[in-house]
Design a binder for these strands. Sequence first.
DNA 1: TTCCTTCGTGAACAGGTGTTCAGTTCTTAC
DNA 2: GTAAGAACTGAACACCTGTTCACGAAGGAA
Lengths: 224, 224
Amino acid sequence: MVYRRTHQVVKRLAARRSAILAAARETAAEGGMSAVQIAPVAVRANVAAGTVYRYFPSKADLISELIAEVSRDELAAVRRAADAAPGPSSALAAAVSTVAVHVLSQRKLAWGILAEPVDVDVTASRIASRREIVGEIASRIDAAVRAGHLPAQDTQLAATALLGALHEALVGPLATENPDDPAKLRDTVQAVTLLALRAVGVMDARARGLVVQAVLPVRSLVGA
Amino acid sequence: MVYRRTHQVVKRLAARRSAILAAARETAAEGGMSAVQIAPVAVRANVAAGTVYRYFPSKADLISELIAEVSRDELAAVRRAADAAPGPSSALAAAVSTVAVHVLSQRKLAWGILAEPVDVDVTASRIASRREIVGEIASRIDAAVRAGHLPAQDTQLAATALLGALHEALVGPLATENPDDPAKLRDTVQAVTLLALRAVGVMDARARGLVVQAVLPVRSLVGA
DNA sequence: TTCCTTCGTGAACAGGTGTTCAGTTCTTAC
DNA sequence: GTAAGAACTGAACACCTGTTCACGAAGGAA
């Protein structure tokens, strides 16, 4: 009489949902947000277009969740890197360079999530995404200020500015095209990290040292 | 036999063209780029929708020209401010704070021209617009470096980062909503200018002095 | 005035994509 | 095995705007 989902079915449903999200993510990583259309994503996920709507109320919801997912990953990486640093200034340097590396590793995806024109309204997700990263960076700046390493300042504003600087310099329309040369990428990451650290008040000489330490442990500097 | 435009007609045509552009600009300033649609702009300019196409081949061309126009104004203002400064560092400070003030004065317009999602392809204009401002700032940084006031660096990258920082901090989605309090606006402009100057290597104490001098002469800190 | 050219009009068109839904297939319960 | 409900399908639909174009108005030459 009553229909109850079997454990197996629940698993399959979850898997499908993930498949759709993954398909959307891959599509975005390859072709940017504009390529994330229901039909292609459905094909990639091996479902019909209508099926997507059994898992997501609308395209906007799908993209919002995609943004949230990527954002979560990013935030986790930043936290991990910063927490592993020996002190507040190092942590800040690690956080900034991690963001830089991530952005560079997944340019299309980063651009899509941050700024690319989208036909649906995903403003809320984008704001949330930014807020998370900015909050994390702001708290790291805060820690450095409290430790007496940096002058007092509006840390929220500073963190926002840093994020903007990283994005514009690394994936903005004026960013260098596609230097898949790891050495060049490392230089770029170091350069923007240096700018960021100096911006919040780290002295030039000390900033240079922090930058080198922060960027050295970073593994993959190339990616999709 | 041959039809030749009277001087009067030429003037009327030019006036109409300007009216359409002005209508587009006003519309963008009020509602962002998404509000710049052919029909509303035409109404505002007191012409029919079809008439717009007698002056602009496509919506993309209209918006591109709008971007170019605003960009020209902005660049001129930046040049003027920087040229009036007593030295390279002051010039840089003046350039940066001028950009900041302009962006703040016309938030919606700035956001629309810089980053707002648009359905047509205006990438080229946007890149050109950015390139002009970035080039100007880069050359000011360059001058300061040559004068020995700043450490050697990739000035193009630095200028790009500064632009991104200003935009994100001032009109990005995380920017404070609408502080029409002039004092608060001045503080914000000073804060981001300070960040920018320190980013390129100006020492904290000196940067603070430059910021105050640069922002003082700025007149209107409020606008549409 | 007359004729030709250009300009202006606005309703109709076009194209692309998110969304729906009636029909089909699969799953569960008995 | 069978009935009932859930999941899936994909073609059709809907909507939104940029763009067109046949027609009328206005301007210039003769």
